[in-house]
């Protein structure tokens, strides 16, 4: 009975962040639970813990990569940060402001500063609006540029994204996937954002087009001093574009640190397995990979203790009961695993 009660309550305790000017985004213990409703009265009987206490921050002008398998909650993190979903717990500071405390009007005014690019270039463009309208409508609505400079601004953005002015009159269905993704990027950038969540922007594209889009994103970052949260399941892409990387597993951020640290020295067993799973285009290159057993448990009913313990090769008794805390093993390299529990004790 007590258990049941507990399961429908969201624990929300976190230490409020002390804002650091360097960071454009600071996230602490962010939680997003989706209620599972059942019965005639649609009572909440449980939660899908899509994001379950994620803490990280992103420095201005850098790219943070967020990797993980499908269903690990990386997309939810992206959307909750933008307040497209209301959070269930924790805190999100954008430029030091807690955006989840904004009212609707303030939020709308803030929207242009934080943009999102989606995975599916087909469903992310309204099929019945011409491209020019898609790109410019929000600019016009927010009156970001004076009307006399409006056309130039749009043309400029489109040009930067590799689109021609005559594309304005066309409809999305006339474009290929790569082109559509450029339109999405142009739509986001037309609003002069500071921060862009790239939600698997290249996953649906062909390899040669992927490279074009990745290059475009990196060029634009340079030009506009953008900050990216780059969400992808493709480690090689994340590795290429990011400066910091977070690895998510079942709603938890299991490892988080600079790209160099993570790739040179992956600490969490899941990160190690993930890295070794990437197929390398070299015949016979990698045959001794770590193959994880089983599949990802349901986030509605995650395992107790460390969520990875069901698939972990180094699973200890402790992992099955106690949830590991995120700890900083190296400077700016955080990991949540019981394997490294003793080490700080030894050193201290």
């Amino acid at each position: 009975m007590a258990d049941k009660f507990k399961s429908t309550r969201i624990v929300d305790d976190y230490t409020p962040i002390v804002h650091n000017e360097e960071n454009i985004l600071e996230v602490v213990q962010l939680k997003k639970y989706f209620p599972i409703k059942s019965g005639l009265l649609q009572r909440v009987v449980g939660y899908v813990k899509a994001v379950d206490g994620v803490t990280f921050n992103i420095k201005r002008g850098t790219t943070m990569g967020l990797v993980g398998e499908s269903g690990c909650g990386k997309t939810t993190v992206g959307r909750t940060i933008l307040r497209l979903y209301e959070k269930s717990g924790g805190q999100v500071l954008f430029n030091g402001q807690d955006i989840h405390k904004y009212n609707a009007k303030e939020m709308r005014d803030l929207r242009p500063k934080m943009q999102i690019i989606f995975q599916d270039p087909y469903s992310s463009l309204s099929p019945r609006l011409p491209v020019g309208e898609i790109i410019s409508e929000a600019v016009r609505e927010h009156e970001l540029v004076p009307s006399e400079a409006f056309e130039d601004h749009i043309d400029n953005i489109m040009n930067k994204c590799g689109l021609q002015p005559y594309h304005k009159d066309r409809y999305p269905h006339e474009f290929s996937g790569g082109q559509r993704q450029r339109i999405c990027i142009a739509r986001a950038l037309a609003l002069n954002p500071e921060f862009v969540v790239c939600d698997e922007p290249v996953s649906a594209l062909d390899v040669s087009i992927q490279a074009q889009i990745i290059n475009l994103l990196m060029d634009l970052q340079e030009q506009f001093n953008l900050t990216y949260l780059f969400i992808s399941h493709d480690l090689s892409v994340v590795e290429h574009i990011s400066s910091t990387i977070g690895v998510m597993y079942l709603g938890d951020l299991v490892e988080y640190g600079s790209k160099k640290d993570i790739f040179a020295n992956p600490l969490h067993p899941y990160t190690q397995a993930l890295f070794s799973a990437i197929p390398v285009p070299e015949p016979g290159a990698k045959m001794n990979r770590i193959v994880l057993e089983g599949s990802i448990p349901s986030p509605a009913n995650p395992p107790r203790g460390c969520k990875f313990h069901t698939r972990c090769a180094y699973c200890m008794d402790r992992c099955k009961v106690e949830e590991p805390l995120q700890r900083e093993l190296e400077p700016d390299h955080f990991v949540a695993c019981h394997l490294y529990d003793q080490e700080p004790e030894k050193t201290s």
Binding site: S208, Q210, A211, S236, H240, F275, V280, P281
Partner: peptide
């Protein structure tokens, strides 16, 4: 092959066709 980023190879910029 060049346009596919690879964990092992470090390139400043991806080649794109």
């Amino acid at each position: 092959m060049a346009s596919k980023p690879s964990v092992n190879k470090r390139v400043e910029r991806l080649y794109s066709i």
